[in-house]
Simulated assay, not measured.
Amino acid sequence: MLTLKYQRLEQRLGYHFQDKRQLQLALTHRSHGATNNERLEFLGDSILNFIVGEDLFTRFPEAREGQLSRLRSQLVKGETLAEIAREFELGECLILGEGELKSGGQQRDSILADSVEAIIGAIYVERGLDVCRERVLVWFAERLNKLSLNTSAKDSKSRLQEYLQAQRQPLPEYVVVQVGGEGHAQIFTIECRVVLSKQPTQATASNRREAEKQAATLMLTQLNID
């Protein structure tokens, strides 16, 4: 029997598992033991690439292969999946080994991203492709709708820097506000500060560069920069 937090997760996912063991398995990291989500992650990764690729193929009939591949890579990369995991508040539901718990594994991008793929795999196993496709496209709808063939492939830090340069403003400042976890598995909290915004943005990730990129993404949104 799943606890209330897992029931709430199902509500956020918009999918209720008939076999709750599938959800538990999808949330179980390999650090917890031999029975873990790696096989579901493998399956979910393949299905996610297919579903997103199929949608892009239909959405952009005039696009070339290279353009479709670029757009898909933006959507299925670990950074995007970790963002979606945080939207689902997935971290609090992960089943981790003691070492990962102590080192902040609940907030590690790679673990969060892998768990999203595992959930996709679990939905496919339980209900098949049609139901799985419907859920994935709902989760990715906002991001898919923002895409165009002119969507920049540059990361958020580059886009923010170029925007500020065009506005003749100082470059963004990235400040480490907290470092947690053990030495081999640190968690960085980074603040992004720009002159054009009185309110800095803050992000947490398993490495400094990733946290800076996430903070820059939040700043782009705050400044209403597409």
Rank of each mutant, 00 (worst) to 15 (best):
Q178P: 02
D114I: 06
I187P: 02
A118M: 08
L40Y: 14
R135C: 13
A211C: 09
L4S: 12
V76G: 01
L129E: 04
F88K: 15
L90R: 14
G97P: 03
G91P: 01
S148K: 00
L9E: 09
F42K: 13
G183H: 09
L75D: 00
R64H: 11
Q22A: 12
Q214H: 07
N36P: 10
E173I: 14
G97F: 02
R70Q: 07
L27A: 04
Q74R: 02
K157Y: 06
D114T: 13
G181I: 04
Y124H: 07
E79A: 04
Y124M: 13
R135A: 13
R209W: 14
V194R: 04
D109Q: 13
R12Q: 14
N36T: 12
T58Q: 10
Q186E: 09
P170W: 13
L56G: 00
K102W: 01
C132K: 08
G183I: 12
Y163Q: 06
L9Q: 05
R127K: 13
L171R: 15
K146G: 03
L90V: 15
V52E: 01
S158M: 01
R135N: 15
Q169D: 07
H16K: 10
F17Y: 13
H32W: 08
T58N: 12
S31A: 00
A215G: 03
Q67K: 12
F57H: 10
S31R: 08
I123E: 08
H184F: 10
Q106N: 05
A216S: 01
F60P: 01
I51S: 04
G91C: 08
D45K: 15
F42M: 14
E117L: 15
R208P: 05
E54R: 14
K5G: 05
S103M: 06
A205Y: 11
S156I: 03
F17N: 05
N207V: 08
G97K: 07
Q161G: 05
D155W: 03
Q22C: 08
T201F: 03
R21A: 10
L160I: 03
D155C: 00
E173P: 08
C132A: 09
G181K: 03
